[in-house]
């Protein structure tokens, strides 16, 4: 392994890759510890509006902690987060209303119907009943699950649950969508379906996406990526630039170089 590469953080592009452009997410010098264990150490990166940004890291890299901080499950011990210019700590309401989230764990209420899950989410964003019903009907039809609306969530397959969760995350019209390893546990077809769908939202609707994964095959050369390892940003920028800067053949090789020596160093699929 190139030791310089290991010791230094590799920034394939300038830290502000979208000069003058609107930033969807800005993470600045974020640090967080659980007791003595440092989960994130001075993490900084930016995600531009209407871009697909991949947060790439092995299990235990700090992705879930980062997501917990961005969704304000709890505040970071140091550093700041801006969502479309709204500082999360000072303007949590304004920041969170622009945010849609698909958590790694299934978060549908299994005892409720698909429809009731969507209406509950709409209420949590203050949407009126009429507006909520109208939009819930629309998003559900668009993920091809309109006919399953009255079924209990527990009756859906894993892939269908994920589609409902994505529809639910978009119900209130967020501008930034966070997805924490959304394809874990899904079969190949369902995975491809989810990835394709979210990419289409970025391309056609201008949605900004932060997609956390450890699966290399979900990363495209045109994506922006942030490589997180042991709570530290190892590289960020356009994927093709990261690959070139690392002197690797592809993002899998670059990721391997950047995270070499990690416990359980299997890199993606």
């Amino acid at each position: 392994m190139n030791s310089a590469l290991h010791d230094l953080r590799l920034y394939a592009e300038p830290r502000t890759p979208w000069p003058g452009a609107e930033l969807a997410l800005e993470v600045e010098h974020l640090s967080h510890s659980y007791g003595a264990r440092k989960a994130l150490n001075d993490v900084s990166f930016r995600a531009g509006a209407a871009t697909f940004t991949v947060l790439l890291g092995l299990n235990g890299a700090g992705k879930s902690t980062l997501f917990a901080l961005i969704t304000r499950l709890f505040n970071a011990q140091a550093g700041g987060i801006h969502i479309f210019g709204h500082e999360l700590r000072r303007q949590p309401g304004e920041a969170l209303r622009r945010l849609g989230v698909v958590f790694q764990a299934r978060t549908l209420d299994l005892d409720l119907s698909v429809w009731q899950n969507l209406l509950y989410h709409a209420a949590l964003h203050g949407m009126s009943g009429r507006e909520a019903r109208e939009r819930a009907g629309r998003v559900l039809a668009q993920v091809s699950l309109g006919s399953r609306a009255q079924e209990k969530a527990r009756n859906l397959s894993g892939g269908q649950m994920r589609r409902v969760e994505i529809a639910r995350a978009l119900l209130h019209g967020p501008k930034l969508l966070l997805l924490d390893e959304p394809t874990v546990g899904l079969d190949i077809e369902a995975r491809a379906d989810i990835v394709r769908h979210v990419r289409r939202l970025v391309a056609s609707e201008g949605l900004s996406v932060l997609w956390a994964t450890h699966l290399i095959d979900e990363v495209a050369d045109s994506d922006h990526a942030v490589v997180l390892h042991n709570g530290v940003v190892r590289a960020q920028g356009r994927v093709s630039a990261i690959v070139a800067a690392a002197g690797a053949q592809d993002i899998g090789g670059a990721f391997h170089l950047l995270t070499q020596g990690a416990a359980g160093g299997e890199v993606g699929e």
Binding site: M127, L170, H172, G173, K175
Partner: peptide, 11 residues
């Protein structure tokens, strides 16, 4: 599967 992004809601 396709979905229009309902971006109009956030005002």
């Amino acid at each position: 599967m396709s979905m229009a992004h309902p971006s109009a809601v956030v005002n």
